[in-house]
Simulated assay, not measured.
Amino acid sequence: MPTTLYEVLWIFIIYAFIGWCSEVSYAAMDRGIFVNRGFLNGPYCPIYGIGVLTVIVILTPLKRNLLLLYVGSFFLTSILEFLTGFILEKVFHNKWWDYSNKPCNIMGYVCLKFSIFWGFACTFIMLIIHPIIYAFIRYLPKTPGIVLLVLILCVFVTDCCVSVATILKFNKRLAAINEISKKIHVISDQIGENIYENVTDALEKKEKFEEDHEDLLNEIEDKKLILNENVDELKGQIENLNQEYKRLLEEKKYGFERLLKAFPDMKSRENNEILATMKNIHLKSLREKMKKFRKDKEA
């Protein structure tokens, strides 16, 4: 059981790092590639640090009762994962992971399979891993330990700020692309409406064609010229919007690429169709890179 803020912070940092290593290892086995998993850029997943710290503080008195330790770990980690997913979606309007396709899930934030796993993992940590980690923290020289901890926390806080800024920019990018998509649809509808209105108008005046032959032809010709000018102008706008749409979708930025790679199941509450398109482009690019890597390795 940690007794000082110094020990609490070290426990948080160490298990956040161990959690990141676990996520990277799982992704490597599941997808066959290195993935910098987690909400942040650095090698740590805060949810693991908070989760294990919570389990240690609350369940240490139950350590001798294996069943209660497991049940407590099962429920505490499930509650934490649910709250984290729920809060992140409310704050950033993105669902970072989704267990909706797995049985016995709650709103896609937690599922029985992973809750069972977290229960076993935390039980193992409490009985085997944490005594070693805690002994390391206690025997670490205090002054170097404080200096090192402060440096790590400074990097961590900076990373949090950078990551939040990146996510906000990412959401703005999705919104901008979605707005362009809407404008393209509006202009396409305008082209269709202009053509429809002019053709309908010409058909309605067909009966007067014989008696107002010359004047009607001139009027139709004038409308045709105006229509062509309007259509050409609208087509130019569509072409410009399509180019901007494609540029924003395909433009590569490290922060955006990392988020798409780290959270392949991420969903956007407001711009999910655009996000799905971006993920498909990213997946295609990733496959091409992997194919080239394998060819180079074989050569």
Rank of each mutant, 00 (worst) to 15 (best):
S22C: 14
E23T: 06
E23I: 12
E23C: 11
V24W: 13
S25P: 04
A28W: 15
A28I: 13
G32M: 15
I33V: 12
F34Q: 01
F34T: 06
N36F: 12
R37T: 07
G38R: 12
L40D: 07
N41Y: 12
N41S: 05
G42A: 05
G42L: 08
P43Q: 02
Y44I: 06
P46A: 15
I47T: 10
I47G: 08
Y48I: 03
Y48V: 09
G49E: 02
G51L: 03
G51Q: 01
V55P: 05
I56E: 12
I58C: 09
I58K: 03
L62C: 14
L62I: 08
K63V: 10
R64L: 08
L66R: 04
L67A: 09
L69M: 04
L69Q: 05
L69W: 08
Y70Q: 00
Y70N: 00
S73W: 07
L76D: 11
L76G: 04
L76V: 06
L76N: 10
T77H: 01
I79N: 03
L80F: 04
E81P: 12
E81M: 10
F82Q: 03
L83S: 10
L83Y: 01
G85A: 10
F86V: 12
L88V: 09
E89I: 11
K90S: 05
H93Y: 07
H93F: 10
H93Q: 10
N94E: 03
K95D: 06
K95L: 11
W96C: 07
W96H: 00
D98L: 09
D98C: 02
S100L: 07
S100P: 02
N101G: 03
K102I: 05
P103M: 09
C104G: 01
I106S: 06
M107R: 04
G108K: 06
G108S: 08
V110K: 11
V110D: 05
C111I: 09
